[in-house]
Write a protein that binds this DNA or RNA. Structure first.
Length: 440
RNA sequence: GCGCCGAUAGCUCAAUUGGCAGAGCAUUUGACUCUUAAUCAACAGGUUCCGGGUUCAAGUCCCGGUCGGCGCACCA
């Protein structure tokens, strides 16, 4: 089969729908356009034929009269999914459908597979995930999701630039996987004959740029965690991390909520959204509550990182959670938040003042050395971001890493390893700074 | 990793207590000058995921495997 190598394309379906919305039933515009796309539906009716053409922007009907269109018979034998390019006049049919009345047309490519049932689309998950290109044509909601994701990435990047953050790229292959609590992927460098890990977070590299004198940096990119796979968890996912010198963590929370609300406005035009049929609002400001307050309120008794561990373990048992021997009061408190406070985390909220025990890279709280100046934002019950005043004291940082190493020795395969180069970098002295991670 | 469920025509799905494997759409052929998942008529289309077993007889029951979905666990 020989098909043309190019097509003089000059119009998109969605733009035609918008531009010619005023045409009345049976009216002909006199304007000739060239559109191209896939034939998704074909209705042939003797000396007339109608086809639904879909392109990247939307759909428009093709209208053919045997007396007008060239090669009319051949058109009616097209297969669903075939690519065509057509030249014709923009008209509205007698029955009111905006159409391109075809003068000439050409088949640009043949589809050897169909795109599923024309009503049900493709339902087979295996086929949808292994052949996303088919899914994109068969199921418009897939295309919308991907388009929106691209718009979100663009809006995030633009807003970071607008706030004076410089975009950087840091190493993905690392000798030590660090910056988060997660199991890494291993790989091997042949020339160096040494083991490397795919990064689980860019955190420490970005902090070293702050040590190096950049006040505001961010990185948007893939990180890799060796964990379970599900529709909500991808072993490789995109994260945003940014660092700002001189900000306090209240500043970082304000930046966070304005970034999320702003991106929602940029992409959707509103901060009012719905997830799993339940509405919520990204409108700022978001409430800021300490972890101890939220847990105490929900369980009806005063609890904090200073509560005896035994009591916290008892409370966890109510939720069928068995505290591991390595869990101190801080870890227990965090587990209680996750188990008991799901409902409070539906509408966007900041949970603040995390225990130092579970925050090895965060600076201690000015009011309580057992806590850190760390917050996480939640929406729809899921963590959106994690931010804190960065620990800049190399002595304390080394001690925290050593605590982590003890956890690792005790069998915690997600505990951090000591990153000597990072500790050394802090020894040169760092401006006080705040970091933010946002992961999807 | 554990548990539950599923796999039948190109696609979406049926098939009663074990008793001749079906429909719609798509494909092929024909009719049709305003259709909208067009309609009407006809033809064709099958290793019932794979391998064993029980039975006169297995899509259906039993065992093993592969792939997938959901839940749990892990996590963002």
């Amino acid at each position: 089969m020989t098909t043309p190598y190019t097509f003089d394309h000059n119009a998109f379906a969605a733009a035609l729908q918008a531009t010619y919305g005023h045409l009345t039933d049976g009216e002909e515009s006199g304007d000739v356009v060239n559109v191209a796309g896939r034939v998704m539906l074909l209705r042939s009716q003797g000396k007339l034929a109608f086809a639904t053409l879909r392109d990247s922007s939307g759909e428009i009907q093709l209208f053919l009269l045997s007396a007008v269109a060239e090669n009319f018979e051949e058109f009616t034998k097209l297969h669903l999914g075939d690519w065509v390019g057509v030249t014709g006049e923009v008209v509205r049919t007698k029955r009111g459908e905006l159409s391109v009345k075809v003068h000439t047309w050409v088949r640009l490519a043949e589809a050897l597979h169909n795109f599923g049932d024309k009503w049900a689309g493709i339902a087979d998950f295996d086929l949808r995930y292994r052949h996303r290109e088919a899914d994109l044509w068969a199921n418009p909601e897939t295309r919308q999701a991907l388009t929106r994701r691209s718009a979100v990435v663009r809006a995030v990047r633009q807003r970071c630039w607008d706030q004076g953050f410089m975009e950087v790229e840091t190493p993905i292959l690392n000798a030590v996987p660090t910056g988060a609590a997660a199991r890494p992927f291993r790989t091997h460098h042949n020339a160096l004959d040494s083991a490397f890990f795919l990064r689980i977070a860019p955190e420490l590299w970005l902090k070293r740029l702050v040590v190096g004198g950049y006040e505001r940096v961010f990185e948007l990119g893939r990180v890799f965690r060796n964990e379970g796979v599900s529709p909500r968890h991808n072993p490789e996912f995109t994260s945003l991390e940014l660092y700002a010198a001189y900000w306090n963590y209240e500043d970082m929370m304000t930046f966070t909520e304005e970034l999320v609300a702003g991106v929602a406005l940029d992409v959707l035009g509103t901060t009012e959204v719905e997830y799993q049929g339940r509405p919520f609002s990204f409108a700022t400001p978001w409430p800021r509550r300490t972890m101890a307050e939220l847990v105490s309120e929900t369980l009806g008794e005063s609890l904090s990182v200073h509560t005896p561990r035994e009591r916290l373990v008892e409370l966890l048992a109510r939720y069928d959670v068995t505290a591991q021997p390595s869990w101190g009061p801080g870890r227990c408190l965090e587990e209680l938040l996750g188990e008991a406070c799901g409902e409070q985390l539906w509408h966007p909220i900041f949970v603040t003042d995390f225990p130092v025990e579970i925050s090895p890279l965060a600076r201690r709280h000015q009011a309580d050395p057992e806590l850190t100046e760390r917050f996480e934002s939640y929406a729809a019950g899921r963590e959106l971001s994690n931010g804190f005043s960065e620990l800049i004291d190399p002595v304390d940082q080394r001690a925290r890493f050593e605590d982590q190493a003890r956890l690792a020795a005790a069998g915690d395969d997600e505990a951090m390893q000591i990153d000597e180069d990072f500790v050394k970098s802090l020894e040169w002295g760092t401006a006080p700074d705040r970091g933010l991670g946002r992961r999807h």
